[in-house]
Design a binder for these strands. Sequence first.
DNA 1: AAAAGGATCAACCGCCTTGAC
DNA 2: GGTCAAGGCGGTTGATCCTTT
Length: 398
Amino acid sequence: MGRSPCCDKVGLKKGPWTPEEDQKLLAYIDEHGHGSWRALPGKAGLQRCGKSCRLRWTNYLRPDIKRGKFTLQEEQTIIQLHALLGNRWSAIATHLPKRTDNEIKNYWNTHLKKRLAKMGIDPITHKPKNDTLLSSDGQTKNAANLSHMAQWESARLEAEARLVRESKLRSHHLTTQGYTPAASSSGSPLPQPATRSLDVLKVWNGGWSKPTEANAASLGTGNINGGDLESPTSTLTFSENNAQPLMNSAIGESSIPVTDFVGSTSGSSESRNIVKDEGEHDWKDGHVSSSHLPDQNNSTSFTSSLHEMTISMEGAWNNPDQSLRTHNSVHVHVGNTMEEGFTSLLLGDSSDRNLSADSGKDSDNSTGSGSDDYEDNKNYWNSILNLVNSSPSNSPMF
DNA sequence: AAAAGGATCAACCGCCTTGAC
DNA sequence: GGTCAAGGCGGTTGATCCTTT
């Protein structure tokens, strides 16, 4: 575009801020608020461009910034949200109060990305780097992983759609924030449209799920983000009556959670409706498919686009002979160990990891395959989906 | 003790979006 | 509808710190 830079004025200082400059900026904002960033430097007596002032304030001087090491909970949240949203740091930051998008971005690039890579997970796609999951029962394991992949793909697609929708809605509610940087990275809850009461991803899970008592019990609260994380995302716990197992059954198969890919035909059309329409109504107008979830209004049936899922999975898993297209409906049984697995995955880097210590297997995961990798991947996807499940309806994310 | 290499993170750059006119 | 200013965002850079040799 050739737009001139904002700092093209000769004499404007660049580089690290001095304590004196910080003091000037703080004092001015304290007294007047930031107002127009472009006008601020002159009024505050700073030889900086407005953009530089804004960044300094947003990323460093703001009083509600938490500095220091990231907690395990925060790491989990970052990884999970990154799996869903990619490099949308500001969106991720809204779920990490007191952390800035810049800080999260740096932490991802310097820590988490490497850690995932060591775990054998592609930090970009969050998919296993190897697809050598087949073993004696490889088909089952592959199918189970496919189910995780499929759910994640669907969740991601819906999150994308909703993100677009919310961004439009949000713009109407952000005009009066005192500290505008908070809108993206302070973590202060954004004003939510009154109609944003339906978390499509929860609906999605609820629509094709039927929790069992065993699952609910094994899940406990299902709150993987508990602890010290203050994010609105993290504070949600499943009620006892409404505990939704992550992988649960659309057709109810005793205590073993089942993921059910049902009805590729109807699924496609419904999903298209949902994605194309940014209004709230479509999220609520799905047909009733479950009477098992009393707390979920309308018990919307959310059947994701199998077409999209299939494309995605075929791209990710080069095993077309065992793809989901074999039948119209694929039932795969998966486990139910989310928090434990993910926490283990995250505890230290791969050199610290000891997931397979009990079994005495090679702990080097970068080339590993077989059951440990299978369990790791399963837990990984479980954890991501669990975050989706636990996201509040007023999350700015979904 | 010093040099080299790696890790970290604050800050910048350029593009995009939004809103006002 | 077009233009422009301003803010926001993500990618990248470079200075500094830390660790290793």
